[in-house]
Computed example of a mutant assay.
Amino acid sequence: MVNPAPIQQSPVAILAIEELQKSYGAIEVLKSISLSIDAGDFLVLVGPSGCGKSTLLNCIAGLEETSAGTICIDGRDVTNVPPRDRDIAMVFQSYALYPTMTVAENIAFGMKIRRVEKSEQKRKIGDVARLLQIEHLLGRRPAHLSGGQRQRVAMGRALVREPKLFLFDEPLSNLDAKLRVEMRAEIKALHQRLDASIVYVTHDQIEAMTLGTKIVVLKDGVIQQFATPAEIYDAPANLFVADFMGSPPMNLIEARVGPQKQGVSIRFGEGTDQHVITGTNPPAALAAYADKPVIVGIRPEDFAVARDDSADLTLRAEMTEHAGSDNFATFALAGKKLMTRLSGKSPIAVGDEVPLSVDTSHICYFDPQTTERIA
C-alpha cells in the first residue's frame, strides 16, 4: 500500500509525525511515516514482528535517531531533542525497576533526579499509589511483587511525571493471559480517568482493538491503515489488514460478482461445487468487476445457523470448537476453509450439513491484484 499523504496538523495535535524515515545502513525500517493525533488520544501501533512499531516508538522517545522527517510533540519540533527534554514518560516491557529500591523509591526516583521538593514527591507518590491501588506495596521491593504489581509500579513512575505524552512498549507481554486481560482493563480505565495522551505498542490485535481510539497497522515499515478501531475492523484497507485484525480473522475467499436487481450476486466455486449468495449494499466501484475475480471478505460472526428454507449456504462441518458462548465451526467453501463464529447453543457435529445465513451487509470486496479494498 502506498503510504497516505501527510496529514494536516490539527491546532491541538499532541503528536505529529511527518515523512519519518529510519534506516540501518541500506535496510529501511520505517518508510515515510506520517500521522497526527490529538490530546487525549490513545494511539496503538500494531503489526507483526519486525514491522517497525517498536522502532517508531523509540524514534518518538528519542532513543533512536531518525534518518529523515520530523516529530512534533504539542507543537514543538523534538526531532533532535534529547529524550529527557521531550516531556514524555515511557513504560517498558521489562518494567525496568531498581531491585534495591522500595516501590515508593522507584516511583520517586525520577522526581529525585529532577530535584522535586520532598513534600511534592510524597504527595505525588500518594496520589498515584491510590490511583493504582498499590498503597499497601510502597514499602516492598520489586522481588516481592507479582508481575501485575510490578507493572503498576512502572506505570506509577511514569504517571508522577505528568508528561505531555505516555509511551508504552508492549507492557503486558510478560503477563499471563488472565492478568493481561485485567491489566488491559485497568490501562483503559486509567486513560479514561486521566484523559492522557498515549502511544502504545503491541503485537496483539485484541489489545489494539480494545484499548485504542486510533490504530496504526504497520507492515514492513509502511502504514497499511491509520483509523479508528471500528473503521479498521469494518472497512479494512487491504487484504493484510483484513487478515491481521480480528480473532478469528476475516474469511477471504475468491469469487465472481455480477449485478442483481437487489444488490450483487456472489458466486463461489464452479460446477457442482458452486455456491451463490446475494449481497446487499455493494460499493459502486464493484460494477467494474462484473464477472471478474474478486476476494470476498466475511467476518466469522456474520454467519448464523438458519432455517433450511432461509439458508444462504448449506455446508458440511469439517471441525468444531465449542468455547462456551461461542461455537467455532469450520466449513469448506470453494476449496477454502471458512471459519464461522456461531452461537454456543448451536449443536453442530463434524459431518453435519449445516444451513447458514450470511449478513451480507458487512461483506468487504478486495481487488486480487492490488490487494486493496474496493471502495
Rank of each mutant, 00 (worst) to 15 (best):
A285I: 06
K112H: 06
E64S: 01
F240S: 06
D77Y: 05
D74F: 04
D312R: 11
Q121P: 02
D127M: 11
I17A: 03
S343Q: 15
T272A: 07
Y95C: 07
L313I: 13
P283K: 09
M319K: 15
Q225S: 03
D291V: 02
A189M: 13
R180Y: 00
M155S: 02
T314P: 13
K53V: 05
G126C: 10
I27S: 15
Q8K: 14
S54L: 00
P282N: 13
L211P: 09
I253Q: 02
A39W: 07
E318M: 14
R123D: 15
G62R: 03
S49E: 14
K219S: 07
V128P: 10
V350T: 07
L45C: 10
R184D: 03
E117N: 07
I17T: 10
M250W: 05
S54Y: 04
A104W: 06
L30M: 10
T55L: 04
F328A: 11
Q369I: 15
S67C: 12
A290S: 12
N3V: 14
R157N: 10
G47M: 01
S36C: 11
S94G: 00
I134V: 12
F226V: 01
A255G: 06
E182F: 11
A227V: 00
G335F: 03
C72R: 13
Q205T: 12
P83Y: 15
E207W: 04
C59A: 02
Q133S: 14
M101D: 03
R86Y: 12
M111V: 04
L145A: 08
L338A: 14
K337H: 06
L333V: 12
R114Q: 10
E117L: 14
A16N: 12
L132T: 13
S343L: 09
P368T: 09
E18C: 09
A227N: 10
E135D: 08
G269K: 06
I198F: 13
Y289T: 08
T314Q: 12
I295W: 05
I17W: 02
K336I: 15
T100Y: 15
V201I: 04
Y365Q: 07
D312Q: 03
A26R: 07
G69F: 13
Y365M: 01
T340Y: 14
A323F: 09
G212R: 15
N251M: 10
D367H: 10
S310P: 12
N3H: 08
V241A: 13
K118Y: 04
Y24T: 02
R316F: 01
R86G: 13
L57Q: 12
E64N: 03
